[in-house]
């Protein structure tokens, strides 16, 4: 590696001058391209097969009105949400793995997902709520759990391992409560809850998608702004403070953003597991750089969820699986493969 591995954007004397690792930038662009191509494919596939030209026409609002409705009103929101939700999960995973310096880190650590499931279960089983009520219930549950974990773990600052333990304890209690709800409920409610709990993009529309997409995009922008501080925080609180990064405050900001990203994703699609865990790891292996890690994590997450959703829709067609089940299986197999590959590298 040499200085020529960097790309410079802007003028050295101008108001804007940036330096990025070329490899990271290329990786990010390739990932984005792959995701967009897959998105095009997903827009064309389904019970009604469309050619690329037809998809393009439909997107531009030309061609038959019926096709336009199928593409713009049914398939497009689903594809867009797969990108946004996947990207949000990838980014929040990157945040949590960086914060607790642990590749197993994910928003689950602070009990968010279990709390969201509790909220959704309560809304489904006790209140028989509608889609939006379930989403609200999940948000409230998740945020309350995350807040509780943070407060209980706070003792003269937040420490990674104390956070993990308190998170495990609160998650265990909530999970026990969830189990109780599940066995007390009628079979029908329990099935509805389990479907929600698996995480799914089935039946998503623009109405359902927009609020969470907006929240995600704002949180993503803010996260990118904090990206450099996050990278400095990885070197330890001492080094980060010495470089002028207020450690405790930055950590709280980043954690809040991670929670907002997960919350927005969960509200739209339910708890989709494994993207938050796997996307940052894959991104880091692809880009091998730190400045672009967040963007790469976004694109890897988006690509993964889109791919998983494509499989969930078409693998057992006409039956649709919840996408969360596909991500969990793919993610688990990927992890096993990673372990094998690493042991091969280590022995060679």
């Amino acid at each position: 590696m040499s200085p020529s591995d960097y790309l410079y954007l802007g003028r050295p004397t101008g108001p804007i001058y940036l330096r990025v690792r070329a490899k990271g930038l290329w990786a990010g662009m390739l990932l984005a391209l792959a995701a967009l191509m897959l998105a095009g494919l997903a827009l064309g596939a389904g019970a009604l097969e469309l050619s690329h030209a037809q998809v393009w026409q439909a997107l531009l609002g030309e061609g038959p009105a019926r096709l336009g409705a199928v593409v713009r009103e049914w398939r497009l929101p689903r594809v867009v949400m797969a990108l946004v939700v996947g990207g949000a999960l990838g980014m929040s995973g990157a945040i949590f793995q960086s914060l607790i310096r642990n590749p197993l880190g994910s928003p689950d650590v602070i009990g968010f997902n279990t709390g969201a499931y509790t909220g959704a279960l309560v809304t489904i089983i006790l209140l028989q709520g509608s889609y939006f009520e379930i989403a609200t219930g999940a948000l409230v549950g998740g945020l309350a759990a995350a807040l509780l974990v943070y407060l209980l773990a706070y003792r003269r600052g937040i420490q990674g391992f104390r956070l993990i333990i308190v998170g495990i304890a609160i998650s265990a209690m909530l999970a026990a409560f969830n189990t109780w709800l599940m066995i007390s409920a009628s079979l029908e409610s329990a099935m509805t809850a389990a479907l929600w709990g698996a995480g799914s993009l089935n039946g998503i529309t623009w109405d359902k998608a927009l609020p969470s997409a907006l929240f995600s995009l704002v949180a993503m922008m803010l996260t990118l702004l904090l990206g450099r501080r996050m990278a400095l925080l990885e070197m330890g609180d001492d080094s980060a403070s010495a470089l002028g990064v207020p450690a405790e405050r930055t950590r709280l900001q980043l954690m809040s953003l991670g929670v907002v990203l997960t919350a927005a994703a969960t509200a739209a699609a339910g708890p989709i597991s494994f993207i938050a865990l796997a996307a940052p790891q894959i991104a880091q292996r692809l880009s091998r750089s730190h400045g672009t890690a967040l963007l790469c994590a976004f694109w890897v997450g988006a690509l993964l969820l889109l791919l998983a959703d494509y499989c969930a829709q078409h693998l057992f067609a006409p039956r649709q699986l919840p996408v969360g089940i596909v991500t969990v299986s793919i993610g688990g197999l990927y992890l096993v493969w990673l372990l094998f590959r690493q042991s091969r590298l280590a022995s060679s």
Partner: peptide, 26 residues
């Protein structure tokens, strides 16, 4: 402000963690 101090006062801490795979230049 934290950054103003950081322009005047540097520190080589006892324990610091290099992020995985980071290059010397970075």
């Amino acid at each position: 402000p934290a950054r103003t101090v950081a322009q005047q006062l540097g520190l080589l801490p006892q324990s610091a963690t290099a992020p995985d795979g980071i290059s010397v230049l970075d």
